[in-house]
Design a protein around this nucleic acid. Structure first.
Lengths: 232, 232
DNA sequence: AAAACTTGTATTGTATACAATTATGTGATC
DNA sequence: GATCACATAATTGTATACAATACAAGTTTT
């Protein structure tokens, strides 16, 4: 996954790049669950036809980041509490295993990248940008899945991490995500030490911790205009 | 071009129904890995425009049943041996857990449905229709995943089962699938008895057995014409 | 006033036209 | 005979036009 390019406007938006941009905006909570995603509006914003927008929306709907109802259009998905628990239960099943394998396969370059993720995440929190911190936190988990060298499972985890971002927007009750910093640090340490069993156990407890931080009732969310939310 | 009004309940083919029809054809090995899927040809067969076909192909590409390369079009996916092993490793991670939960949640109606699947599968083998038997065998696994009441994980398993069908087309070396009959029967028995631990263990050993039946080198496959393969 | 109908607008679904790209075949050259 | 160049066909990518559906507001009817 490459970082978003900044200022060159000549980038002809393709359905993939638009899906990625929308996905990032959802990850960072610039557009919240329930927001209607109107095809014409998005086509205008990205300077392409509805055809391309439709492809992007459909690909996001497949990973359940957006929900498409026939003749009703697309909106950012709004997982139920049951789905929320399911997502975290699935993560608790998959990710400890990937942490185990990651501890086996990780190279020094991998370790360095993971540590950079943690630093960036911390910097985003310092800069009062919790949305970006959340996104980076997701990248951290995805990166571990890829290091584990199981691309099929890594693909599943990517969708689970993405949906987790929606869930956090709806059900999160904890004030800061700072507590995660130590958990992530300890995890990297275990992976660096090639302590597979410990990495697995740290990942498991980390996820249980996140899962327990879900609230029981939905939060209300104000919805910004798409133009504003997608202007970067 | 006018649509086919000749037949009675002319189910206006939608992208979903077309995706399902193609998926079934792939499951049943009527169209084999590597087969080119030309949009115009499919549009002609199903009596819709390319727009609808494209949506169907894209949705199949998301679950990796078909592979789409830009400007090159779609073809039935042809997983590498590495991917094949990954798919089965993922199944070995997920499905024992669902078997465990299924044993917990299964109702008598669920048991009856599972047993019907086994019978149908056996009947298909008797009728010398191994493709259909394979499809039904996949349904059996999907059904267990749904009984386990974890729709997120069930969704993952569905894609893994689908890809397994491609893998079997490419790498299967066993003559008959009859051996599975006993495995499936024993599994249902354990679920019926609500013996969670045994169900989990039977599922694990069943999957290890399947995994071990993969050959190391690809088989060559003859490709039929799409019109013939999709005529049902 | 409440319910049902009507009409107008916004939005999505599908087909089609055209542009861009890739694949194919033919002949010239060595 | 092999290989390259180039023209032609086949196929995919994108935009747009139009049809179908849903949504909202106002009007009529009871």
């Amino acid at each position: 996954m490459t970082r978003t390019r900044l200022s060159e406007p000549t980038k002809t938006a393709t359905s993939g790049s638009i899906a990625q941009a929308l996905s990032l905006a959802i990850h960072e909570h610039r557009i919240l669950p329930g927001t209607k995603l109107v095809e014409d509006e998005l086509a205008e914003i990205y300077g392409v036809s509805r055809t391309v927008i439709r492809a992007a929306l459909h690909s996001l709907s497949h990973i359940q980041l957006v929900e498409i109802r026939r003749n009703k259009g697309a909106s950012v998905a709004s997982p139920s509490l049951v789905e929320a628990h399911e997502v975290f239960e699935a993560r608790e099943l998959l990710e400890p295993r990937t942490a185990h394998s990651a501890a086996h396969f990780a190279t020094p370059a991998d370790i360095a990248r993971l540590e950079r993720h943690i630093e960036d995440e911390h910097a985003a929190l310092e800069a009062a940008d919790p949305g970006r911190a959340l996104y980076l936190s997701g990248l951290f988990h995805n990166d571990i899945a890829h290091i584990a060298n199981q691309s099929t499972i890594a693909g599943f985890i990517e969708t689970l991490v993405a949906r987790s971002s929606l869930i956090i927007a709806l059900y999160w009750r904890r004030e800061s995500a700072l507590c995660e910093k130590h958990a992530h640090h300890a995890l990297v340490k275990a992976i660096e030490d090639k302590n597979e069993k410990q990495a697995e156990e740290l990942m498991r407890s980390h996820l249980v911790d996140l899962h327990s931080a879900l609230d029981l009732k939905k939060r209300s969310g104000r919805v910004l205009s798409l133009k504003d939310a997608l202007s970067q």
